[in-house]
Every structure is written in C-alpha cells, then in structure tokens.
Simulated scan of single mutants.
Amino acid sequence: MAEPEIKPTVAADITALQGVLDQTGLFPSEMLPEMLAPALAGEGEAFWLTCHMGGAAVGLCYTVPEAMAEGTWNMLALAVRPDLQGQRLGAKLVAAAEARLRQAGQRILIVDTSGTQDFDAARRFYLANGYEEEARIRDFWAPGDDKVTFRKAL
C-alpha cells in the first residue's frame, strides 16, 4: 500500500473529495466547491487538508478559527473514503492539522460530534487520538441527540 500524503487542498482535489463526501454522507458534496473557495483564493485563516493515496484524494480535514477566542480552532469536517477507514488516515489528517496549528502558536483544537449510537466510532476515534470530552449539550442536534464537544490542548 502507498504511503499517505497530506497536503493543502487544491482545486484538482474537488471531484475526488466530492466522491468521499457522497460515500460518507458527512455533508452534501455539492456544497464543497463553495466551502473551499475562500481557502483556494487564499482568503481567511481556515484551512483544508487532503489525504492522497497513490495520487488519489481519499480524505479531507477542514479547520477554522473560533470567533472571539484566542488561539482556539474548530475541526468542522473530517472524512475518509469508507473502503480506507481503519488505516489511520483520519488520524494522519488530524495530526497534520494539529501540527500546522501548533507551528502557528495556536492553543486548542475542538471538534463537535453527535452523542447518538451511530457516532460511537467517531467518539472513540477522538478519544484514541488524545481528545477529551469537554462538554455535552443535551438534545442539541435533535431530541435525544446530544452535541458532544471534544478538546485537545496543542
């Protein structure tokens, strides 16, 4: 198996990443070009990273600064093509985002997920990668669906 390569997302990655989104259901893939546009234009601080395997874009990570907070960032999206999940590609994407933030002198990275059973694997993933459950807002997403916030000091 080829070694994964994590790089800033470029326009040429969009089609393959839309396929990742279609396969994972993270969010509607037609939203991706508009969401990526500011980063591709070099506007703002938010950044996207893409995981490449054998030259193909197979995963993404999207991280933004938290408004009105000093050195706190939020990982809004993390996805890896389902046939490649379990190979630590998500962990490599997260580690690359953390390294970039650390190098820039940032302090904290947070991530929100659902408290439902469907998201057990996501919560285990963050715990296994050094995140701690920091907060839980009951019934946030919907009745019976808590918002679970994980935090990691950089």
Rank of each mutant, 00 (worst) to 15 (best):
M1G: 12
T9C: 10
T9W: 07
A11R: 13
A11P: 05
A12F: 06
G19V: 10
V20G: 10
D22E: 12
D22T: 13
Q23M: 09
T24M: 08
L26A: 12
M31N: 15
L32A: 12
M35E: 15
L36A: 14
L36Q: 11
A37Q: 14
P38W: 11
A39S: 14
E43I: 10
G44W: 09
E45P: 04
F47T: 01
W48F: 14
W48R: 02
L49F: 03
T50F: 06
C51V: 11
M53F: 05
A56W: 00
A56T: 14
C61N: 09
Y62T: 01
Y62N: 09
Y62L: 00
Y62K: 04
T63M: 02
V64L: 14
P65H: 08
E66W: 08
E66D: 09
G71P: 06
W73D: 00
W73M: 03
M75P: 00
L78R: 01
L78M: 12
A79R: 04
R81S: 12
R81M: 13
D83C: 10
Q85D: 08
R88T: 04
G90M: 05
K92I: 00
K92D: 01
L93D: 05
A95W: 02
A96D: 02
A97W: 04
A99D: 13
R102Q: 12
A104D: 09
G105R: 02
I108A: 03
I110R: 12
I110W: 01
G115A: 11
T116P: 00
T116W: 01
D118S: 13
D118N: 13
A122T: 15
F125K: 06
F125A: 05
A128W: 03
A128Q: 13
G130V: 04
E132W: 03
A135K: 05
R136M: 08
R136A: 11
F140P: 10
G144M: 09
D145N: 14
D145P: 06
D146M: 08
K147L: 15
K147P: 00
K152R: 15
K152P: 07
K152C: 06
A153Y: 06
L154G: 00
